[in-house]
Structures are given as C-alpha cells and as structure tokens.
C-alpha cells in the first residue's frame, strides 16, 4: 500500500510517500509499525497512549478513520493511507 505523509510527519519521515510492504491488516497495525520505523517524535502526532490521537487525520482512500473503525479499520494492500498530524487553518 502507499502511505503518504504531511505536515510534521513528512519532515520526520523525510519523505512524501512510500510503498509500504510490511504486512498491516489494520490501521492500528500500520501506525504502530510506522511509529516503530520513525520513532517517538513521529508517534506523538498520531498516537496517544497506543490509541489513535483524536486530532490526527488518518485517511484510508480519502475516508477519515474516525468515521470508520478508527485503529481497527481494515486495510488492503491496494489501499492509499494518508497521515496528517493535528493541523488546521481557516
């Protein structure tokens, strides 16, 4: 699957996107693996004590997982996952 990074996450990961080849059946599995890869500075913007950080915007094919099954949202190898830290504007 393709994982895309925005905001601080892009800076920390040092890349805009990547083909993620490690297995991840759910958003939760993926996030824990991505955080293991990029470290706690990355993790603080997406996870909160192991749960999904409420203000992080995690999309699967453009759908916000906060309106799906949050960390339990299932993933397929063809999915596009988009990760935003808490950001805003107006």
């Amino acid at each position: 699957m393709v994982v895309s990074y925005f905001g601080m996450l892009r800076d920390i990961a040092g890349r805009k996107e990547e083909d993620w080849e490690q297995p991840a059946a759910t958003v939760g599995e993926l996030l824990h693996r991505v955080v293991a890869e990029y470290g706690p500075q990355f993790g603080r913007w997406v996870l909160d004590n192991g749960d999904l950080l409420n203000l992080a915007i995690v999309l699967v094919n453009g759908r916000d997982v906060r309106g799906l099954q949050r960390l339990a949202t299932p993933l397929k190898p063809t999915d596009n996952v988009t990760l935003f830290p808490p950001v805003a504007g107006g």
Binding site: F6, G7, L59, G62
Partner: peptide
C-alpha cells in the same frame, strides 16, 4: 504548534486528500 509551523495553507493537502 501546527499553525505556527505551516500556516493556514497546510489545509491545502488536508482538504484535497478528502476530496
């Protein structure tokens, strides 16, 4: 943090990625 680092234009990608 977020608004200072990227300004309001950080929303371009947020809004675009949700269509």
């Amino acid at each position: 943090t977020g608004l200072r680092l990227y300004g309001t234009d950080v929303l371009t990608n947020v809004l675009n990625e949700i269509g």
